[in-house]
């Protein structure tokens, strides 16, 4: 009973906050409306007794929205982010695509013949889930991890305007490096 009430309240909050993302005329409100929506979803996951996944969802999403606030100012020229602005664009395409996706997913959820549960959930759900995800694929994951990091580093290196020659001089001997923003370690 109580869980049912909490579920419905959270569901309404999640959807309402999701709508608010597009209705709000301020980038900050849209950002944190999205955060509220995700927090509601995270608590829903807690209701499913997936404590770790629920908390991680909340943690990641709040952090992500805070970082989004950084990007908001970094990359939006003339800072429209600080002024009231419309949160929507390409409306017809977007509405068409989202209604289509919703009908597809909701129709699928309602019409598909769901299988009956077989067996019981294990005691340590998170542990079992981790084994299920990682057990067979550990080697793949272990390889993909470094590859992803290397890709990120390579991407940043390629995107950066300055090279090591700008930092350390033509013969790479200048110490400390010539940085536009000096750091605290004094490299």
């Amino acid at each position: 009973m109580l869980i049912g009430i909490v579920f419905w309240v959270l569901a309404v909050v999640a959807v309402a906050a999701g709508v608010a993302v597009f209705v709000a005329d301020s980038m900050a409100r849209a950002t944190y409306a999205l955060a509220v929506s995700f927090i509601a979803v995270g608590v829903q996951i807690l209701l499913l007794q997936q404590s770790y996944l629920g908390l991680i969802t909340i943690l990641m999403m709040v952090m992500e929205m805070a970082v989004m606030a950084v990007y908001m100012v970094m990359f939006m020229g003339m800072n429209p982010a600080l002024m009231p602005m419309d949160m929507t664009h390409g409306k017809k395409t977007a509405i068409g695509a989202s209604v289509g996706a919703f009908v597809l997913l909701a129709g699928g959820a309602l019409l598909i013949p769901w299988p009956q549960r077989r067996g019981e959930p294990p005691d340590e759900l998170t542990h079992a889930l981790g084994l299920e995800i990682m057990g067979e694929k550990m080697l793949v994951m272990a390889v993909i991890g470094p590859v992803m990091v290397a890709t990120i580093v390579a991407g940043v290196v390629l995107a950066a305007g300055r090279t090591r020659y700008d930092r350390f001089g033509d013969d790479l001997h200048r110490r400390p490096g010539d940085d536009p923003q000096s750091g605290g370690v004094g490299r």
Partner: peptide
């Protein structure tokens, strides 16, 4: 993780 999630809230 709960502690960590709450301390990240402070960012926001």
């Amino acid at each position: 993780v709960w502690f960590n999630a709450v301390d990240v809230m402070v960012w926001a």
